[in-house]
Nucleic acid binder design. Sequence first.
DNA 1: AAGTGGTCTAGACCACTAC
DNA 2: TAGTGGTCTAGACCACTTA
Lengths: 252, 252
Amino acid sequence: MSTLAINPPALGGTRYKEVKSAILAALSAGEWKGGECIPSEKRLAERFGVSIGTLRKAIDELCAENILIRHQGLGTFVSMHQRDRHFFRFFRVVRRDGDKAYPVVTLIDFKKARASREVAAMLGIETGARVFQFVNGLALHGKTVLIEHITVPEAQFPALTEAKLRNRPNTLYNFYQDVFGINVVETDERVSVALANEIESAQLGVEVGAPLLEIRRIAYSYHRSAVELRVSRLNTDEYEYIGARPGRDEEK
Amino acid sequence: MSTLAINPPALGGTRYKEVKSAILAALSAGEWKGGECIPSEKRLAERFGVSIGTLRKAIDELCAENILIRHQGLGTFVSMHQRDRHFFRFFRVVRRDGDKAYPVVTLIDFKKARASREVAAMLGIETGARVFQFVNGLALHGKTVLIEHITVPEAQFPALTEAKLRNRPNTLYNFYQDVFGINVVETDERVSVALANEIESAQLGVEVGAPLLEIRRIAYSYHRSAVELRVSRLNTDEYEYIGARPGRDEEK
DNA sequence: AAGTGGTCTAGACCACTAC
DNA sequence: TAGTGGTCTAGACCACTTA
């Protein structure tokens, strides 16, 4: 049907913004899934009743936001952020000499819980809502240097189990995408200093009270809806956090 | 003359990339200075012998990189990153509740020195080259929470003096732009944990050995030429560092 | 009213990928 | 060879700014 046809620059302001919203809506609705190819520019232009140039401008923005990926001669695909080199877009820890390595992840703990007021506020859910909480240890070059405390809402991750988590073949965000249809496209991170507790001390091989880098991350899906809360603690003896690159506009 | 005219997709690959390079070259040459208006799109299109659409694509990318800023009805301007809201593109410290405040800067120390091997490597200059080193204390909400150790090459900052530094009206990067014609357009930052020394202890009001967040920044001008090295130490009792926002592509 | 950038069109031709 | 996205054109009209 043409319920998806676009009207004159009504609500969104401009045609290409309307087209962009329509594509985003189709993505949210699951019309095209992670890694799949969306229709050709020509077909989409016809579907939305705009010229190719306008359609391209909409897709340009979605590509700039890493929501879509173009491949010349192949088509335009729904981004799978977590594969290959894209991995380091979200994993921002490197050795002091700049060497980037893939971490070996170990699941340390897994449990069901209820969202505290703070957690609920950050995830945009109700206080007391059911959540899963799990803890990962990440090893780089054979040594555990990072502990992650992850919280996700049960509502968005139905039937998540420790076994599924342990047996996932890919990265965590890839797992979210494949199993739950959740696409992490953006994160906010705040960094500060914290002191190692007993558990971290044991896992990281540092003394209790040793200073660690604490990274608090909220991960978002398409319409900036929060899907995951993650508090990580990093031993910065040999590794560092890659900070900002204000190449693009970030605040407005 | 038409030495600036563009040839068929020769070296750079595509027309708009050539145009982009030509504009970047004109900027480096100082043809248009910080804050100034560059010629209209129509005029530039004629000058480079391309259509408006192609010229716009070149400028689109330069705007995306925050090198130019468009103002509808007014013109396109050479970006002054450090003014107003743009300030927080480079100043990535906020109170834990998210409140953003402008820091009050105090010059604590200023001296001439020679570049060590490490500093020289990071700044892309020769070991032993003359540099200026100065130290700032930054206060937020009336309390000093950040100490910056800044190193700049004398070659690029001729006749920099303590007095000039102290009397600058604007932000530091604005000062670089106005006085030395140096445009900071990009930075790399690495974050780790460090322990307060005596000086930091006194300035920040923490104990010697208290854990601080250390941010090491290299600031770059147009062609990714390094212009400043800055090591900052932050007391994260009440403030945090704003980390990555992988909304855009950063590594390739 | 004049000048600017912002949007949009309806094509053309090229480069790349797959078959 | 057919289909895809990538580049480029030569305009039109709109929205905004300044005067």
